[in-house]
Amino acid sequence: MPVSRDFGGAGCNGLEFVAAFEALAGTMRSLGFAMAAANQATLIDCIHSMGTREQQIALLPRLLDGEPGATAISERGTGTEIRALQARLTGDKHGYRLNGHKYNISLAPDASIILVAARYDDDARTHTSLVLLDAALPGIVRSGPQGTLGVRDLPIGDLQFDDVPVDRQRVLGAPRDGLKWLMHIASMNRAYFALSCASVVRPFLADALAYAAERKILDVPIDAHQYVQRRLVDVRMRAERSRWMALAALGQWLHGDPDALESCSIAKITAAQDLTQSAIDLLALHGSDGYRYGALSTFVTDALAMVSAGGTEEMHRRNVFAQMQRRRERDMKTAVYTPAVEDTAETSAESA
């Protein structure tokens, strides 16, 4: 939808896509599918917004035709901590070489196009670089889908890069400029994950409302009891809270607001917490019926995945704290002296 017509897209604006994504996530009953759609949308936006004309012509039609893409940031032991990247991009006479290992990457087992974040050392300084790779390149080895507790409909696997040849045309932007683009990508992804959390619970809440109206104890529907009503209302309130926080964060991101970096992390933390608690409440409301293997129990295990998907809570809190520190430093630099009340009074007296 947001891709220009020049590359086969519909030419819609970002808000139209947000509305469509929200409806999709709220209908599919699959958190894994919503996560896959968010990841694909993030990669498409990245190439559409930041790629060269050649990269756009070569890659966007493939992605729009349904070829899956993967964004490879996370590494074993460090997760999505950008400062700890071990995958390395080094220069050679033909361009670059990529070496490293990526861990727990969504769609890695099936991806045709892979965006990889790596460190690039230049003149004794370390930079973050982003490269766009075709999965068929020599030196790329990927695992099959890994066993996971939840989101089993989202293939997750590892990627190994052994001296992979990288043409200069495959680098997204300059090799030294990857960090700002990576933060742009990460913020978008976090906000869409938050919106997924808010949206995916809707059909399960509708199921719970119907169940509570039909389930009777001593000929009284259980939704007549206040504690049942409270659980259902709490699920609704959490979903709305997460939804509006996600929409606000996406609004900032779409308008280039620098505060979006912080807001997207806050939205992701809050939405993941809300979804987890709502899933547990829905499970408790259905009693032993919910604990049996089925749509609801699958939803509960999927919800638990959001604790770490898109970055752990601790990582997002570090990001929020870093933004708080930067804002404080900025405010201190731009602070304007305001006279105290007594100073103002003395000045007024002198003027008189």
Rank of each mutant, 00 (worst) to 15 (best):
D162V: 10
K180V: 14
R176D: 10
V201E: 06
L133M: 08
V171Q: 05
L154V: 02
V200D: 04
S129R: 00
R142K: 11
L132G: 00
R176Q: 15
G139W: 06
Y192S: 02
A135Q: 00
L137W: 05
I185Y: 15
V164F: 01
V151C: 12
H184M: 11
D163K: 13
A136M: 06
M183A: 12
T148R: 15
G144S: 12
G144L: 11
I140V: 05
I140C: 04
W181R: 14
H184C: 10
D207K: 01
L137S: 10
F161M: 08
A135E: 02
F193A: 11
K180W: 14
G144A: 13
A174D: 15
G150R: 10
P165R: 03
R142G: 02
I140R: 04
G139K: 01
S196D: 06
V166E: 05
L149C: 08
F204Q: 01
G173A: 08
M188L: 14
V131Q: 09
L179K: 14
A194T: 10
Y192V: 06
L137N: 05
V141Y: 11
A191D: 09
L130E: 04
D167F: 01
R152Q: 14
A194F: 08
T148K: 13
V171G: 07
D158P: 02
L132K: 09
R202L: 13
S196F: 02
F204A: 04
F204D: 08
Q169W: 12
A186I: 13
V200R: 08
P138G: 04
V151K: 10
R168A: 14
L133A: 01
D153H: 00
D158Q: 05
N189Q: 15
T128I: 15
H184P: 03
S187P: 10
C197E: 03
Y192I: 08
